[in-house]
Amino acid sequence: MSLSAPTRPLACIKQAIRQCRLERQQSRRYAAAATEAQYPSLQTRYPPPTPGFRPSQAIKQNRFETGMKKIPVVPPPRSTTKACPDPIAILTNTQISVLDPTGARTRLFSPLNPERVQAGDILLVRLRTGDPVSGTVLNIRQRNQPIDTAVLLRNQLTRVGVEMWFKVYSPNVEGIEVVQRREKRARRAKLYYMRQARHDVGSVEGVVKQYLRQRSGGPMGSRDAKGRDANAGRKNKKKGKK
């Protein structure tokens, strides 16, 4: 390139810059060629494969069936296992949504809940048929599905140790109340040692009675039989006023 315009020096500079850029690009290209020559293993000998190319398929079908009649393959129908990989979870969840619409039971035993029921707590289970049952939690068991979550309560009835399993989601169980939490977290998941005489906590009847009195809003203390009477008296007073 000729720099033949001394009358306009600035134009000359512009041209010179362009020239410079071109030369730099060229020198880069040469440099790249030089590295290729230096590392022949980096050069591609064949054109790269098309996207979606599967070598295993290509090898197997081409190696053995060259020149043979091609056998058509009917495409398979829609897969239900892909559409629904875990049908048991669906079945269980529909069950739970019917049996526990508020989600209270699930929360009570959910491992994510810090306030969940743990071994050693005292529970009161209200049943649809018969009296409520209370006891210390010895074990919380979930067999293969969460619908089978169950809790083992131990209590003493007439000085005889009694243990009962309750299915948490069973329609027979109307409600589960936490009467008392264990002060310190049990260091075992299963407190079966409490069956031994020296570890047995005995009857939890007193704790439960106190809890019930407290919950009903009655006076605390040892006035056992007065709750109902007091209520009755109030009612009578009201009637008298009227």
């Binding site: 048991i88 079945l91 269980t92 069950q95 019917v98 049996l99 649809r128 293969n144 599905q145 619908i147 089978d148 989601y169 069973s170 329609p171 027979n172």
Partner: peptide
């Protein structure tokens, strides 16, 4: 696999 079904009325 196995699971259980509850009858809500008869429990």
């Amino acid at each position: 696999g196995m699971t259980a079904i509850y009858d809500p009325t008869t429990a």
